[in-house]
Design a protein around this nucleic acid. Structure first.
Length: 231
DNA sequence: GCGACAG
DNA sequence: ATCTTGTCGC
C-alpha cells in the first residue's frame, strides 16, 4: 500500500499505523512561518455513545472574531490508543474540513504535534492531509522531560527527549496549570509559543482558538441529544 | 516484567 | 474523551 492510499485509510493495524507515522515523520518541515497568518482555525471533538461531533472554528487573527464554523457528526470507528489519536479523530475532522469555505493559514489542534513518540502527533499528522501549517496544544503531558515554568503568564520551559527539544510547557495564565505546546508542521517552536499566546485571554487556561470549538462542540452535542429526546 | 500513556 | 457533587473564589 503506497502512502497515497494510506492517506485515506484509517482502519490500519498498529504496525501499519506506526509505519505510516515513520513515513510522515521524515517529511516534517520545522521552518519559520512566513509573515503573519490572517485567518486561523481551531479544532475539537465531543463524543457520545459511539459517535462524535467534530467542529472547526475559523477566526480572524486581527479582530479575534469568529469568521466561520463548520461541524460534522458521525460514528467513531477507531478506539483511542495512546500515540494514535489521529487515526481516531482525523476522519471526522477531514469531513468537517471539506465543508469549510474560508481558507485558514494555520490550524490549531487539541493534542500534540511533534511532542510524540514518533514525532507525529495529531497536529503533525493532519498537516499532511490539509496541506497547512499546524500547531498542537495539549492539556496534559505525554512524553518528555522538563522543568516547571515560572508561575507568571507567558513563561515557559522546553520539553526534551534526550537532547532534542520537542515542545514547550507554557504558562497561559498566572498561577494556573500550564499547557503543552508543540510544532505541528511548517512552523517553529517559537512561532508556536507566540501564536498560542496571541489567543490567550485573561480568563481561560485554554487559548480561545481551541476553546471556541470546544465550547461549540459540547453545545451541538447537547442540542442534538435534546432534539433526539423529543421530536 | 512493570508502569506510563494526547483525547 | 466521558461519568458527576460539592465547593472555593472573584
Amino acid at each position: 500500500m503506497d502512502i497515497k492510499q494510506q492517506l485515506h485509510s484509517f482502519d490500519l493495524t498498529r504496525t501499519e499505523m506506526e509505519a505510516l507515522q515513520l513515513q510522515l515523520q521524515s517529511q516534517i518541515q520545522i521552518t519559520p512561518y512566513s509573515g503573519q497568518p490572517q485567518i486561523v482555525a481551531g479544532v475539537d471533538l465531543a463524543y457520545f455513545d459511539n459517535q462524535a461531533i467534530a467542529v472547526i472554528v475559523a477566526m480572524d487573527v486581527a479582530t479575534k472574531k469568529v469568521i466561520e464554523t463548520v461541524s460534522y457528526m458521525d460514528t467513531v470507528s477507531n478506539d483511542y490508543i495512546p500515540g494514535f489519536l489521529a487515526f481516531r479523530e482525523l476522519p471526522l475532522f477531514l469531513e468537517a474540513w471539506k465543508k469549510l469555505k474560508s481558507s485558514p493559514d494555520l490550524v490549531f489542534f487539541d493534542g500534540n504535534g511533534i511532542l510524540h513518540p514518533h514525532r507525529v502527533g495529531i497536529a503533525t499528522h493532519a498537516s499532511f492531509w490539509i496541506d497547512k501549517p499546524t500547531i498542537g496544544i495539549a492539556k496534559t503531558p505525554m512524553i518528555g522531560t522538563y522543568q516547571t515554568p515560572s508561575p507568571v503568564q507567558g513563561s515557559y520551559e522546553w520539553i526534551y527527549d534526550q537532547d532534542e527539544i520537542i515542545g514547550a510547557v507554557l504558562r497561559t495564565q498566572t498561577d494556573v496549570k500550564p499547557v503543552y505546546v508543540s510544532v505541528g508542521n511548517r512552523v517553529t517552536l517559537q512561532n508556536t509559543i507566540d501564536f498560542t499566546m496571541h489567543w490567550v485571554g485573561n480568563k481561560s487556561r485554554i487559548p480561545e482558538i481551541t476553546r471556541q470549538p470546544d465550547l461549540l462542540t459540547r453545545e451541538l452535542r447537547r442540542d442534538y441529544l435534546h432534539s433526539q429526546k423529543n421530536g
